Simulated assay, not measured.
Amino acid sequence: MEILSATKLFFFLLLFSCHVSFLSSSATAAYSIGVNYGTIADNLPPPKEVANFLKTKTNIDRIKIFDANPDILKAFTGTGISVTVTVGNGDIPSIAKLPGAQAWIEKNILPYHPKTIIRYIAVGNEILATSDKTLIAHLLPAMKALRSALDLAKARSIKVSTPHSLGILSTSEPPSSGKFRKGYDKLIFAPILEFHKQTKSPFMVNPYPYFGYKPQTADYALFKPNGGVLDAGTGINYTNMFDAQLDAVYSAMKRVGYEDVDIVVAETGWASAGDPGQPGVSVENALSYNGNLVKHVDSGKGTPLMPNRTFETYIFALFNENLKESIPERNFGLFKPDLTPVYDVGILRHDQGVGPTSAVRAKIGRQ
């Protein structure tokens, strides 16, 4: 009886510890949410100041940058904030063979990792959208070469991927009809997805309901209450465009046999200012989209075709960037260059007295 009791006690304690661990991780939610840290501006604070701000004043624990900026990589040393580093599109051909990939890793990764936690290497950005045949042809070889270089350098924790725009789909409405572009499905995407499956790395996509905005579907795009859009193929009624876009990607992946590969949302966001008369662009709409996005992703509800999945999601962007070409492009930031919030989507640590925008933030709950 004493042995049985001890065994029961052991399993009780094991279950209790797992339960506590689950509650602890739930209590620190908001952490499937990261930010894209772009730097096309001449008025941004130094990277060290940015790193300290994110660590001490926000709940953000991951960032994505669009290069391998050494100043940023140094600044995030010891912060516990993970970084996704990007290979420039033009560098892809030079790293498509192992020696080039090893040289790139030697220069851009090994001096910083693991003191700076590098989570992913993003090989280029939206390469298929460039229609550059050379880049497209070298994309997967570059991903494979980087994977081999990381393994040889014993940096196996770093995953390799590449972000795609939703232009990779020939059909996305309704979501169940989602398909990759003809000719790209088996020749390009099946091999890329096979790479992700073999290396346990995610398929990265950049869904932007912002670009699909129409006044008649505004609430649907902004996560506001609406009647929804029916997918006749499945009988599912979609109540937000973000889920519909992700499920269209999932349907395309399923068609080529890779629905089990994880999806990471590498970019999504909403401009808070635009050109005169531009519909749908305002602080209120940016707050509604990004604020409700944070809630939705952190809920763990997933999407209708991918229930109970939490998608690692990177909001675009951390800062308003004043050297971008157009007014909307300059106004995707959650923060101004002086680190004050344009609006607060719920990532600020208000217990530390940060975030003078509580009145604006409160609107999220009233959308």
Rank of each mutant, 00 (worst) to 15 (best):
L150E: 07
F223Q: 00
N240V: 04
A137I: 09
M204Y: 06
N240P: 12
F180C: 00
Y220I: 01
S157M: 08
T239D: 08
A149Y: 10
P225A: 06
Q198N: 07
L166R: 02
L230K: 12
Q245E: 13
A248F: 07
E194S: 15
A149I: 07
S177A: 13
S157W: 07
D185C: 10
K200N: 14
N240I: 04
L139N: 10
G233I: 00
S201W: 00
N226Y: 09
A142H: 01
A153Q: 08
Y210I: 01
A153I: 07
P225Q: 07
A244I: 09
S157Q: 11
S201R: 05
T171P: 06
F223M: 06
Y238V: 02
H196E: 04
S201A: 13
F203S: 04
A137F: 12
Y238S: 08
F195H: 04
P141A: 11
S172H: 06
Q198H: 00
L150Q: 03
H138S: 13
G235E: 14
L246P: 01
L169E: 04
L193A: 01
A232K: 15
K159D: 05
K179H: 11
D151G: 11
K214P: 06
N237R: 15
T199C: 09
T134C: 09
V229M: 12
K182L: 13
Q198G: 00
T217L: 03
S165K: 00
A153N: 05
I236W: 03
K144P: 03
D231V: 00
T234S: 15
K197R: 13
N240K: 10
A218R: 12
V205P: 01
F242L: 02
D243C: 03
A218D: 13
G228H: 02
S201E: 00
K144A: 10
A190L: 13
I188K: 10
T234I: 11
S172M: 09
